[in-house]
Amino acid sequence: MSGLGSSGTPSSSTQPSDNPYHDPSLTPRVQPHTHDPTLAWQMMRLNVEQFLKRIEPQAHDVPKPDGHIRMVCISDTHNRTDHMEVPPGDILVHAGDFTNVGLEGDVRRFKEFLAKLPHKHKVVIAGNHDLTFDLDNYDTLCKTFASHGHHDLLDAKKCRNILLDAGVCTYLEDSEVTIEGYRIYGSPWQPEFCNWAFNLRRGEKCLEKWDLIPEGVDILITHGPPVGHGDLCSSQLRAGCVDLLHTIQTRVKPKYHVFGHIHEGAERRKNPLLDLNLQPSDLHLNAYRSLPGSTAQVLKVCKTPAPTACLKLLYNSD
């Protein structure tokens, strides 16, 4: 098949033989331009069908449809939950960065915040700011962020256990849980980003983590976005992961992908709430943003390619 021009019309200038994006079976394991996500997205949006469709927001007081399960998604709250009015629902998802730098007091406040929420199920992953949750790298992170309260080596396990042992949520780290019949997988990793927690080199190192995501997952939660979706920084460069997008669209194909991380990549709306109402044959998302810098974003992998005009920030499918 030929490529698509900027208008969405076929272009004959790029032939399958010289375009590695056309046939996934012919692409290398690590995607082309994976170390330059801005260039990679420019190429991919022209030459790769994007199986995405936008979710339209609605007010949080819209009644839940009969026979549905309501999921509320939040992310990047950064210890700013004191005045956050989280709408009720059946499942709460937090896509990471619930603290500023993972200090014990921050973790404890987040635990208390979760304990007050009425949701029957609460699923949490860590993000790059939750330093003490990255046990393998905390010794290095402690030195890097000494001026942010880590001047003394904290007991990282103790900080994690404040949340993990409290019984207020299900914490996922390269692991999954089944809730109300839906398989939910969570991973905190993202490509290198200012030497924070859960950072990995682009390419093979990131792909090793994405390889752990099992097929058949209904809802995928990662802290970082895939390239091209909610990942545009104020510098106008993209921070999303090229290999994550490829993994989602060609192998895992979850019903939904929930993520956060890039604050400026989140689109602001008059109605900051999207409902995710789940039933056996359909999913409908509820991403809640109540504070500047607090954002959850959602991607949907559809059965058929979405029109170019639908390549926006939040997605759903028929």
Rank of each mutant, 00 (worst) to 15 (best):
C169G: 09
C169N: 08
T170I: 07
L172D: 10
L172P: 08
D174Q: 14
S175A: 11
V177R: 01
V177Q: 03
I179V: 13
R183S: 11
R183M: 09
R183H: 08
Y185T: 07
P188A: 12
W189I: 05
Q190W: 09
Q190G: 11
P191F: 06
P191T: 03
F193G: 01
F193I: 09
F193Q: 06
C194N: 15
C194A: 15
N195Q: 04
N195W: 01
W196V: 05
W196E: 09
A197R: 06
A197W: 03
F198G: 02
N199F: 00
L200E: 11
R202G: 14
C206L: 12
L207E: 07
K209T: 05
W210M: 01
W210I: 02
I219A: 13
T222W: 09
V227Q: 07
D231G: 12
L232G: 09
L232C: 14
C233L: 10
S234R: 15
S234Q: 15
S234G: 15
S235Q: 15
Q236A: 07
Q236M: 04
L237P: 06
G240F: 00
V242H: 06
V242N: 04
D243W: 03
L244H: 04
L244W: 02
T247W: 02
I248Q: 14
Q249A: 15
Q249L: 13
Q249G: 12
T250G: 05
R251S: 04
R251W: 01
R251G: 03
R251Y: 00
V252M: 07
V252W: 08
P254M: 12
K255M: 01
Y256A: 05
G260K: 00
E264S: 11
G265K: 04
R268S: 00
R269L: 03
K270N: 01
K270E: 00
N271S: 02
P272I: 03
D275Q: 13
D275A: 14
N277M: 10
Q279W: 11
Q279C: 15
